[in-house]
Write a protein that binds this DNA or RNA. Structure first.
Lengths: 255, 255
DNA sequence: ACAGAACTCCGTACACTGTACACCGTACGG
DNA sequence: CCGTACGGTGTACAGTGTACGGAGTTCTGT
């Protein structure tokens, strides 16, 4: 479910669509459209927020808008482009508080948490593929704001980009894991039920003599988190390590 | 395209399937099966390796095996389980060289590179969803071997698990980015063509006065890598930062 | 004012997907 | 030797994204 390909139609059309607020399309002939591209996008987001990305189908979306499925193709070149528009819309809506006098570490933590919150509010956002990301106003504003967090740290431009990419990519990966785990829970039994149900075979097969470390560490981690995987803990742990790693780089550049 | 849900059928059946080599199924009546579960799995892997995960459909796989689509359901409960089996098979085949006397940093780097190589050889592996991962012999052996890389560093069990999870999750995220970027390239024009084609609108809209940092850093990074995103560089950079971050933690535990 | 072009929207249809169901023939256990 | 469990098949269904042709509406050029 990770995703969908983008770039079906004319890429210029997609770009124009992304920047539709800054560069409005010229007046057109024919009947007035029943609604706007924004209506389509926000409706799709509402569906995705409430029922997951799988619920966003062209038929369903058209139905919600009171229109036939094919009518959507007058607003949007295809589904992939719609997903890009949805994502850029949410990027645009992210908070971008002034960094003020906070140090780079606090700034970067804030950036990571803003991304985490985005995925918490819109889990589908982590699932939208971003090879050749949607170069819209939302992404630009987000990138600009995030770069400001490491401006003036002594990192060069390439390192600044790499650092931000690392933080953002880590956060998305964490959100993907969390979404997958949640989906597995919803679909099947609860975590505890699952382990109990499969205990007979697992006991037979997960021989502690054969997998000593995995047994010891796995049970320790499971007991500490109350579940096999705790993505909130993984986020906190990973972010702290990454920040420490960036700190080492910054110290190196300054010495 | 990230993924597919798992756990359609009886979870015990899936587990038994994963461990089919250690706990063989009892002899059965009726006609001899035309092939084995392994045949199905390796055939599916061949298709995925050569033509991508999308090419792995039940009909296509059945065709390659010379059998009707529904026949597969005698070997495997459903497609989601098939994907789990494919993934665990590749996990099982990963190299697990003895860590020897190498320090933890070299060990962890080796672990990360082994994961990177897995995804390089089988890009589809990054796309298979792993919420509630396939608890098969491949994953267990992989986890056991990877934990050994941080054994004896002074980290406690929970930290060991978190450190390995961070490395593995980072590497998978990097592979996902790389796969998405590659798909975008294959599907559309090349990167340079794309930028040229969209230059008119981009020039109009990517105002350096409005996005000063993004413009400066973005072009610097683009020129340094020869492309908008270079996942090999992102891997090297991210891994180094994460290792430095783990080093800080280990130093802290030892003092 | 009017012809034609440009546009929105609809119904139908196609090629796919995973898989449920009923059925047929085979080969083993009693 | 027979009943039965099992492997494999064909058909069918509910979905998906979207291509195509047509009908109706509104603006533009004359």
């Amino acid at each position: 479910m990770t995703a969908d390909r983008t770039g079906a139609g004319d890429p210029a059309r997609t770009l124009a669509l992304l920047w539709r607020h800054e560069v409005p399309l010229p007046r057109r002939r024919g009947p007035r459209p029943a609604f706007s591209v924004d209506d389509v996008v926000t409706r799709a987001i509402t569906i995705a927020d409430g029922e997951g990305l799988d619920a966003v189908t062209m038929r369903r979306l058209a139905g919600d808008l009171g229109v036939s499925p094919m009518a959507l193709y007058g607003y949007v070149p295809g589904k992939a482009e719609l997903l890009d528009l949805m994502l850029d819309d949410r990027y645009a809506a992210m908070p971008r508080p002034a960094h003020g006098r906070a140090g780079w570490r606090r700034r970067l933590r804030t950036v990571a948490e803003a991304n985490r919150d985005l995925y918490a509010a819109h889990p589908w956002a982590a699932l939208v593929s971003t090879g050749r990301p949607p170069l819209g106003p939302g992404l630009m504003a987000k990138y600009e704001h995030e770069l400001a967090a490491v401006e003036g740290t002594g990192l060069d431009d390439v390192e600044m980009d790499a650092a931000i990419t690392l933080i953002v990519s880590f956060t998305r990966a964490n959100a993907l894991d969390a979404a997958a785990a949640r989906a597995a829970l919803t679909a099947g039994r609860t975590d505890a039920e699952w382990w109990e149900e499969n205990a007979p075979l697992l006991d037979q097969v997960l021989d502690p003599a054969r997998y000593p470390l995995a047994s010891r560490v796995g049970t320790a981690a499971g007991e500490a988190h109350g579940a096999a995987h705790d993505s909130a803990h993984a986020f906190a742990f990973g972010l702290e390590r990454i920040l420490d790693g960036i700190a080492a780089l910054i110290d190196d550049r300054r010495s």
